[in-house]
């Protein structure tokens, strides 16, 4: 996808240069270049916003989703350039235009942020070595927890000792219930591992060799859950940033259309 983005970016830059050149030419000819840049900007904005519609119409063959994302990314960056060509300033005067610019920048920044975290997260998710479907994570976690509890029962039955069982009930059950150490996992701090080792060290000296085997299984499950937690944290972020980007985009499009109407009524 990166390659596609690079290729399409070349076309985006060319498009920006063409529009900018023509706008400058119009300015030099004392024509209103804002009409050209403004209508181009809103047209590209609407096309870029179609990605969301494309996702809802997955049953219709409208091209590969990845191609749409590439277009969305390049088109979004093109919008930033067009915005500056259109306004000739970083922050326009006028209260409404200020809000419009603010919304535009928020959408743009959230989009850039989303693109970057998706790039980073995909690498981190690949590094886990497993594939987990986001919607199945509760089920996966539950199964890991059930497996852990199965080991505990087997240990108790086989060794007649409840040390590991008590340790599980007092400490480990908290960890297996749901994703833990969210921020640590997000930033790769490894707190979960430290926590487990710390808690494990306090109980391992009381375990027999047979119990240590079960503890070894339990440790494997913890490491597996860490991977699932990693999937949850990053996939969750991959979805949650859109909670900012998409609604803001909707607001931006409405504000831009109102702006267009005002311009047509008052300035043209």
């Amino acid at each position: 996808m990166t390659k596609n983005i690079s290729i399409l970016s070349i076309f985006g830059v060319i498009a920006l240069i063409v529009v900018g050149y023509n706008a400058q030419k119009m300015d030099l000819n004392l024509q209103n270049s804002s009409v050209l840049t403004g209508y181009t900007l809103i047209a590209v904005m609407l096309c870029v916003a179609l990605l969301n519609t494309r996702k809802k119409l997955s049953m219709i063959p409208l091209g590969k989703a990845s191609s749409w994302v590439v277009f969305h990314v390049v088109g979004g960056l093109l919008c930033v350039g067009l915005f500056w060509v259109h306004t000739n300033t970083f922050w326009p005067r006028g209260l409404y235009e200020g809000f419009l610019a603010g919304a535009f920048y928020l959408v743009s920044l959230s989009g850039i942020f989303g693109y970057l975290i998706q790039r980073l997260n995909s690498r981190k998710l690949t590094e886990t070595g497993i594939e987990v479907i986001y919607e199945r994570i509760p089920l996966e976690l539950r199964e890991i927890q059930e497996k852990a509890e199965e080991y505990i029962r087997e240990c108790t039955e086989a060794t007649g000792s409840d040390v590991l069982a008590n340790h599980y009930l007092n400490t480990m059950v908290w960890y297996f219930q749901k994703p833990r150490f969210y921020w640590s996992t997000l930033f790769g701090a490894g707190n979960a591992k430290v926590w487990f080792r710390s808690e494990g060290a306090s109980v391992k000296r009381y375990l027999s060799s047979e119990e240590l085997d079960y503890f070894q299984h339990l440790e494997e499950l913890v490491e597996l859950k860490m991977l699932v937690d990693t999937h949850f944290v990053h996939q969750n972020l991959n979805k949650k940033w859109l909670l900012l980007h998409v609604p803001l985009s909707v607001g931006l499009v409405i504000m831009a259309l109102w702006h267009l109407l005002l311009v047509e009524v008052y300035a043209l």
């Binding site: 859109l242 909670l243 609604p247 909707v250 607001g251 409405i254 504000m255």
Partner: peptide, 12 residues
């Protein structure tokens, strides 16, 4: 996300 989008559109 859809509901928030509708709410934002309504607010705007």
């Amino acid at each position: 996300r859809g509901r928030v989008s509708v709410m934002v559109a309504a607010v705007v």
